[in-house]
Nucleic acid binder design. Sequence first.
DNA 1: CTGTTAGCGCCTTCAA
DNA 2: TTGAAGGCGCTAACAG
Lengths: 349, 349
Amino acid sequence: MKSTIREVAKLAGVSIGSVSNVFNGRRVRKDIYQRVMEAASVLEYTPYAVARKLALKKTKSIGLFIPHRGKEMFITGLWGFLTSLIHGIFKVTEARDYSFYLDFSSLSKIKEKDLLNKIVKERALDGMIIFLRCPIDCKLVAEIERQNFPTILVNAGLSGVNIPSIEVNNFKGAKEAIDYLIKLGHSRIAMITGPLEFLDVKERIKGYKQSLKEHDIPYDPELIKEGDWVFKTGYFHTKELINLKKPPTAIFCANDPMAAGAIKAIKEEKMLVPEDISIIGFDDQVSAKMLEPPLTTVRQPLYQLGVLSAKKLFDIIDRKNSGPTKKILDPKLIIRDSCTSPKNASKRK
Amino acid sequence: MKSTIREVAKLAGVSIGSVSNVFNGRRVRKDIYQRVMEAASVLEYTPYAVARKLALKKTKSIGLFIPHRGKEMFITGLWGFLTSLIHGIFKVTEARDYSFYLDFSSLSKIKEKDLLNKIVKERALDGMIIFLRCPIDCKLVAEIERQNFPTILVNAGLSGVNIPSIEVNNFKGAKEAIDYLIKLGHSRIAMITGPLEFLDVKERIKGYKQSLKEHDIPYDPELIKEGDWVFKTGYFHTKELINLKKPPTAIFCANDPMAAGAIKAIKEEKMLVPEDISIIGFDDQVSAKMLEPPLTTVRQPLYQLGVLSAKKLFDIIDRKNSGPTKKILDPKLIIRDSCTSPKNASKRK
DNA sequence: CTGTTAGCGCCTTCAA
DNA sequence: TTGAAGGCGCTAACAG
């Protein structure tokens, strides 16, 4: 349990170097190998990871940072959303025999303790992936860049930064959703967004507006509601939307839980989804297909995002040429049963 | 970035020891403190975490292991279930400035690579929490015990083990669910279980049977279906259940996604929940309240489980007396709208 | 191939 | 208090 390489060497009657060779899979004389293994077994020797790290100056571990603004992280089921991302990252790290650290500190804490910066400088990790949804202190990013610490920015949507990043095309996802709705004949389309400071939310709103514009549908600010990702909010905003003088015939929700809330609100008003109001979500969380009706939604390629970002990170750690420094993944519209043509389906461009 | 304590000492014109003292918050002469801080700032010095770990023989990190059997981990939304557990653990580790390491290796891989054992011996972590739902190799557990490595077993349901453990009373949770259904007047109650080798599943089945027994309701094996946690399975099993000659008036599902599947199946058959068939779930995942109707379910105190297990782990790491070695938490029945009395509510004990 | 030795960067005695 | 020196356990370079 607490034996060292020295003791093993002594018991086996060989040098420390030979023991090290054996445990690092280098070619060793057979009898020496035998004796070392035997001694190690007797002493229950296992190399001490930390010491090895010090000698190697490698930690064989990477971290995933998910800075957040407040309490929303766990409350909103944001996790459901992250599942696949983490899965993807884990698959890659596992294959490389790396450890995987997770950190969900709040943005304020990160700033306060200069958390990331500390990690970068303490070199406790070989690299890190930062999943960013709301703007982060630019100084921090600049510092990371300057330190030249292997880092991947996921979903950051930052421009003018040289840190490799990988994102989902939120603009395109939203635009396709609205295009689809318009093709079905809708022209009065509402949107329940996420918090406006989220970078992906901004993109989705842009996509929404762009689609309207391309189809010559006027933009009506009355139809935009700022949400906060949670079920309840989708519910209440939908109630308000329904009670508008000119209610929408379709609602685009910036994530699935809010879409679930929307569906509930509509049903409560004795209306039908999709016959009276079509609903479209975003993410394609596991719950999307459990809804009634099954939710049409924009699927984010989260697993792939995880895999690609981890691979890219290892490329950097290995100092391979890492290809383009920015990659953008396309989301995909998953059509289920929550959308149809509006009742008075007159309009079609 | 790559400066060492030695360089700082030299630049500041003090000894290495003094620099160390400054960085460890020990009392130091003011002018020395000043000079050290200044030199450190100039050189951008930050203590190197790995070296410190080696000297201290502490890693300041703990791990959460979630061994699983195959692919179910990410596919089934098991994660939705783990969210709160992880949240609880993270809260505690964060407060202690510890890192939090995550591992989802499959059981077979753990065995093959002797993963846990390796971690224990390599001392790459100060302690670990193992979330166990299916039986693990007893040798492994015995080894952990022998090594005396700080470990908490969560949900293991192992007996005859001295490793501190903390569990949810699955038996009681299931029993209360069935008691509730029986009180509503049901006597023909089906159960869709999880995989039978899961320890918590066994307990839930026991609770189910016990409740029936206490109310003199005969146990009918036809009403028990082995599920696998996923939506689809709940759906298909429910279809079968409905088509029995004597269909159940209530179905107890071992988790919420299967309950969602059950609800869907029932609706498809033009029947109503809860009027025709009552549904009760387990877990109280975020999706439970999004269902139509909102799901009555047994809430697991997962957040608390996370907090308590992490606290207990730190007690052990700190060598505090750690109180009782086994703790059992009670789940709680959350009554929403998916259960009611059966139509011909004649029976009541 | 094997054994020796000098670090890796920090912390902690022990004298002074 | 401070400074010097000896580890912590391992790897890697080098000489044999």
